Structure formats: structure tokens, C-alpha cells
Simulated assay, not measured.
Amino acid sequence: MRIPDNEDRLRRPARIRSLRVGDLRVSYVPDGVVKMVPRSLFPATSDETWARNSRYLDSSGWLTISAGGLLIENGERAMLVDVGYGPFTEPVSMMEHGMATMYGGSLLDSLDRLGRGPHDIETVAITHLHIEHLGWAAHPATGESEPAFAHAAYLVSQREWDDRRTTFGVTEEVAAALARRVRTVADGDEVFPGVRAVALPGHTAGQMGYEVTSAGERLLAFADVLHSPVQVAHPDWAIVGESAAEESAGLRREVLGRLADEGTIGFGVHFADVPFGRVRRMGDSFAWEPLA
């Protein structure tokens, strides 16, 4: 039986998708994908939970967690929010972490398809220092000696940078590759015309989102406040390893309420092939309506 495209998008890796926010163009820049065992990502769920939410699972019963970045263009100028997993094209099994597989490798090709090269990017904002968000900022492409965006400023919150040695995936080598280029940012800082930093502590203590505003329109890149569109309807679902589950659930509800009530476009970097969307209230819960 053929799966309708709007439902298939919930379970496949993201493709390039673009839309306008006022005078700015924003685009999802795919790099790769993480396939997650659903009950490993959301430990409080059950087999019955996923029987009711099977439309989010691929043919192997896994959740699709896309990896990539958000390209923001203002005329000739451009920046990226997050830069994927990096130049690792072979799927790696990480079942000990609840990840069925993880791979990257396509972000630079995706940028090229969008008409941009690495040297067009003046700023790289890293929402938090997890390996599938910082990849190309720390690792060179094959045959190169420097990371792809070595010319750019890397924006990270001070708390995130201070905690780097305790963060998943940040080895001494990765930290050293980032260190020469890191510039710390704080809540409310304007980092690019029409783009400001928004503190979203929870998933990590120093996590930063980014709000894009132009000509009366607004988009919020909410980082890892939410990991999957299924979580929009279930903001109380804690992900594995959350140290402050109640506070994180409160932040998810706060962000979803703001998106719904203010008409702000949401950007979920991990949201399979529905990264852009609007949030609609459904009684006491919420629904994700994909855009682009």
C-alpha cells in the first residue's frame, strides 16, 4: 500500500526545504540522519504507545531524527544555525545509546544546491555542543586540513562552552578545533540582521535557540527543545538523559504555546522531513502543521 506523502514525510530524512520569513529566506540544509529506537529516546513510552503512533515509525520501527542546519539568507549575506554530523557517510551503529544508526556527509552538497559555498557563511551558530549539531564546524572535508567553516565565527553560549568537556561527543580534539573560532553569545543578542539568540536551557544547560524576524513575520529555531513531531502532541514525554524532566516539559509547553499563540513558524532541526511548521492548539495539547 502506498503511503501518502504527507505521512511519509514523518518517517523519512529531511530534504532541502525553503520558505520566506519576511525579506529573509530560510532553508533546511540536510546532512544526514539518526535512526532512534523509540523507547530508548522516550523511556516512559511503551509498545502500546508506539502502536498508536506508528505513522512516525519507519519500516524497521525506528524514529527518523534528521541532522542538518538552518541556512538564513539576507541578500548576499548568509549564516547557519547548526552544521550537522559532519563528513561521516557510513552509517555507524550506536545501539548502546539507543541509536540504531547515525550518518552525515551531505551538508556541503546541500549548500551547493542552494547556491551557497562554505565561504559564503559568515557565522555558524551552534545551538548546543552535541555531535550532530557541530560536525562540520570541527571536522574537515576529505582532503582538507581545516574544517569547512573555519573562516566563520562560531557562536555558542558561555554556559555551553564552559560545560564542553562533559558534553556528549566533544572530545579534546573537537574542543581544540572549535576553540580558536568560538565567540560566546547571550540571550537577546542580535547575531545577524533579523536574528537574535534565545536561551532555551533544558536539553543542555546552555542550549540556545535563534529567532528570525523580518517584515512582521517570525520563526523560532527551537534546537532540541523537541526532537520529533510526535512530541508536539506529547510535550510531557521526557527524552533519555534529561536531568530535569519537569523543567524540560515546562519549557516544551511554553515554546509550543508561544508558537501557537503568536503565529510564529517553528523550525525543528530533527523533525524528519517536516522541519518547518506551525503549531495549533488542540484542547490541552498541540498539533504540528508542516510548511514548505
Rank of each mutant, 00 (worst) to 15 (best):
R11G: 12
A150N: 12
P91D: 09
A176D: 14
H139Q: 12
R55G: 10
S18R: 14
T213C: 11
E144R: 13
D109E: 15
A260C: 03
N74K: 12
V92L: 13
P193N: 07
F168Y: 13
A67T: 15
D236K: 06
V198W: 08
S110H: 03
G69H: 04
A148T: 05
E7P: 00
V156S: 00
L70D: 00
L70W: 03
V21G: 01
A215L: 07
G194I: 11
D47Q: 10
T167C: 11
W50R: 02
I3P: 02
R164A: 04
T204F: 05
V269H: 01
V182H: 01
M99H: 09
R11C: 05
L178D: 06
D189P: 01
A138Y: 09
V232T: 07
V34H: 00
A272P: 09
H97W: 14
V279T: 05
P118G: 08
E242A: 07
V279L: 02
F222N: 03
Q231S: 01
K35N: 11
E7K: 13
D109R: 15
T127Q: 04
H119A: 15
A78I: 02
E247Q: 13
Y56M: 06
R77F: 04
V185T: 10
P201R: 10
N53Y: 04
R77A: 14
T184W: 10
R55N: 07
A138L: 07
E48A: 15
W136S: 04
G250Y: 12
G69Q: 02
V83Q: 04
A245D: 06
S110L: 07
I72Q: 06
G188R: 03
T89S: 14
N53T: 05
T171P: 00
R15Y: 04
V279A: 00
R9E: 00
L63Q: 01
P43A: 11
F149T: 05
G209K: 07
V33T: 07
G84W: 03
Y103F: 14
V26T: 08
F168P: 08
A272Q: 09
D163S: 09
V156A: 01
M1A: 15
F149N: 00
I131E: 12
A177N: 07
M95E: 15
T264E: 02
T64N: 05
G143L: 13
V225H: 06
V240Y: 13
G105Y: 11
S214Y: 04
